[in-house]
Nucleic acid binder design. Structure first.
Lengths: 161, 161
DNA sequence: TGAGATAGTATGATTCCCATATAATACGGC
DNA sequence: GCCGTATTATATGGGAATCATACTATCTCA
């Protein structure tokens, strides 16, 4: 009886530990992002947008503004800077269904410069992963993906609610 | 022989999957942070600093500037805004060894407002954690903590190197 | 005691953010 | 097909943020 309660208590602590660790990781990755951005003369929001463009593929400024949580006019400035720095191109597809539409595309040939920034963190993650079995890595990757989904939902709730 | 190679290949893919998931999570949490900040009228950097003050305990402006990667003068502006908003207090310890020193302390009585913002994400994480055993949760928390340490090291390397 | 380092903040030029306005295009009802 | 409205991307201007520099007060150490 007491052991059952102890078990429940232990479990709550475990869940709490996971959430705290996640929050600490969140802060640390934010700081790491800022250092990344500083290395290529990009503001926080600029860096976020470049990352989104790189990973979510070519997309329109309005869609990017929505997902990044930025004012459309602010995003124009962000894109101006990214384009001036040669990180992206704005394309106007001639045979697009909507002739107002602009497509923002990352210049892949410059991605090597970005990956170089990641190399330190990358090497450390490789080493860290060595300590886990295949099954454990799969478990971790799945947890991370599900957490991302949860974060996405929470973000939407906050931005719309 | 071939199966050994396949196993190694599979493993590389697993590691890659973990890193990609982590990167996606990084972006998503950045966006979530921006929404949090927007809800309490705080800029990205302001929110980061408030979070650091809350979690790393009372600390000096210079230490905060270092860890947050901000210019000292910029941090003065950040602290001004946080203080004006009533989120922190600047204290001048009378019997401190260094009389120049200022201590920045979070006003804990306002933390409830912050936790309310987290409630959505918090509830989702609770639910997500239900799918894991105690041992799995421990594994995950440990992985997250070690990743935070790795991020910390990578941040230091970038900011000093 | 004095030279130099350090903590925190003020100052001013530059840059950024964002509410609003504008131009071009799309869409829905009639 | 035509007109009112919505939407996309960007320009404009006023207010705010950023950061190099300077400044004051204090500490350290010789």
């Amino acid at each position: 009886m007491s052991s059952v309660q102890d078990g429940a208590r232990w479990r709550r602590q475990q869940i709490r530990a996971v959430k705290e660790a996640l929050r600490d990781l969140n802060i640390q990755l934010s700081l790491l992002n800022r250092q990344f951005g500083a290395r290529v003369e990009l503001k926080d929001a600029d860096w976020d947008c470049l990352d989104l463009i790189n990973r979510q593929g070519p997309l329109s400024p309005s869609a990017l503004a929505r997902v990044a949580g930025l004012h459309p006019a602010t995003l124009t400035g962000v894109l101006d800077r990214l384009q001036r720095g040669g990180w992206i191109v704005r394309e106007r597809d001639p045979d697009a269904t909507d002739r107002r539409a602009v497509t923002v595309r990352a210049r892949r040939e410059r991605n090597a410069e970005l990956y170089r920034l990641f190399s330190g963190m990358n090497a450390q993650m490789d080493q860290l992963c060595e300590d886990y079995t295949d099954a454990e890595l799969e478990l971790i990757a799945d947890f991370l993906r599900r957490t991302t989904t949860a974060g996405n939902t929470a973000t939407d709730e906050l931005s719309s609610g």
